[in-house]
Structure formats: structure tokens, C-alpha cells
């Protein structure tokens, strides 16, 4: 049986202490590219979580049958299959979203988070735990994306998920809509959270 504490640890690692974007600094490319609108970030996050979770599940299920020296090939095959499923699904049922995410859906394949989790966790852990680990990492990624995109969308468009929250007369900050702003915001968020993490670590408050 899966222990509750283990699940809790996985989620804490994926979302906070080993957050893929803040701490491991992987998956940045798409984090910068699709964060101009919150809706885009949310869909991207869900897509990535789906792919990571199911890829890890499959990799873990097949791990005892997979010869070690071809495991990377098998992993890439599995990951790309799930990415193509997501791509087809978006094209069929969410054509507008598929258009605004553009090539970044296909590029989930190259997202290091998935390969990292498959290689680093799923290869050595039971299927259900690997699945949860995939979800946790995806969730960590999604939360960071939403954080960045909320700042960009509010300052750039004055909206949240497309709903107007700032008065219409507000001067829109064009830079926020453009890619460079993602760099600044991501760096600031990373700075704040890492500062906090290091401080806690120094105090010895954090228990692993």
C-alpha cells in the first residue's frame, strides 16, 4: 500500500522544495513562452501534468521489462505518444487554444521536466507513486506559470482569465505582453522564493 506520508512528501517536493521551475530551473522555455495569458498557462500546465503523469505511469509499468540500454528510446516514444494525444485533442476540441499555444504543445516533448521525472523517479519507483509524482511536478510547473501569467495579464491587459478587473481606462503596460517581461518576472519570483527557502534552511526549520 502507498503510505500517506510518502504521497505528501512527493507533493511537497514537486510543488515546493524541488519545484521544477524555481529550484531545478528546467522547463523554462515554455514557462516564458505561454505565460502572456492565464488561460494559456492553465491549459499548458494541465497538458504538461497529463503528459508527465501518464508517461511516468507507463515508464514505471514497463520498467522491469525494459532493457536498460534502450530505456531512453522507450521513454521518448512513450512521452511523444502522449504529447501527440494532447495535440490532437486540443486541435479537435479547443481549436482556438491550440492556435494560441501554437508549436508549444508539440514542444512539450522536449520539456525536461517529463524526461527528468521519467528517468529520475519513475524508473525506480512503483507505478502509482510515479503517477502521483508526475502530477506533483506538473502542478508545481502549473503554479509557477499561473503566478507569472497573473502578473503579466493583470498589468498587460487588466484582466484575469479574460475578466476585466482593472478599470478600462488603465494604461496597459505593453512590455508585459511581450516575451522579455517573462524573464524579469520569473527571475523576481525565483529570487524571492529561493531567498525564503535558503533562510529557512539556514534556520534548520525545514524538515525533509
Amino acid at each position: 500500500m502507498i503510505k500517506k506520508s510518502e504521497v505528501k512528501k512527493i507533493f511537497k517536493k514537486g510543488i515546493y522544495t524541488e519545484n521544477p521551475v524555481f529550484v531545478q530551473v528546467i522547463g523554462i522555455c515554455s514557462a516564458l513562452a505561454v505565460t502572456n495569458l492565464m488561460m494559456n498557462s492553465l491549459i499548458m500546465g494541465i497538458a504538461l501534468s497529463f503528459v508527465t503523469a501518464f508517461s511516468c505511469l507507463t515508464v514505471s509499468l514497463l520498467k522491469s521489462y525494459t532493457p536498460k540500454h534502450i530505456r531512453m528510446m522507450v521513454q521518448v516514444l512513450i512521452i511523444s505518444s502522449f504529447v501527440i494525444i494532447v495535440d490532437i485533442y486540443l486541435k479537435a476540441y479547443m481549436p482556438n487554444m491550440s492556435k494560441s499555444l501554437g508549436p508549444y504543445v508539440g514542444l512539450i516533448i522536449t520539456n525536461c521536466i517529463i524526461m527528468g521525472r521519467a528517468e529520475g523517479f519513475a524508473q525506480a519507483n512503483p507505478p502509482i507513486l510515479s503517477f502521483l509524482d508526475g502530477i506533483a511536478s506538473g502542478l508545481g510547473y502549473t503554479l509557477v506559470l499561473l503566478m507569472i501569467s497573473s502578473i503579466r495579464e493583470i498589468l498587460g491587459f487588466g484582466t484575469v482569465f479574460g475578466f476585466q478587473i482593472l478599470p478600462e481606462t488603465i494604461t496597459k503596460w505593453t512590455l508585459m505582453v511581450m516575451p522579455p517581461s517573462a524573464f524579469f518576472i520569473l527571475a523576481c519570483i525565483m529570487w524571492v522564493t529561493n531567498n525564503r527557502r535558503l533562510k529557512l534552511e539556514r534556520k534548520g526549520v525545514e524538515k525533509r
Partner: peptide
Amino acid sequence: YYPILFMIAVTVVFIAILASINYMLTDTI
């Protein structure tokens, strides 16, 4: 031979899944 056979088997399974999903949704797309 095992790795080759294994790889072929896995590929066939995944291609079959993808092909059927693609077939089902072609019209919608």
C-alpha cells in the same frame, strides 16, 4: 534480439493507439 523485439512491440502498441485516436478525430479537426 530481446531489445529489438521489445522496441518493435512497444512501438506497435503506441502507434495503434495514436492511429485510432487520430482516425476518430480527423473529421472534427
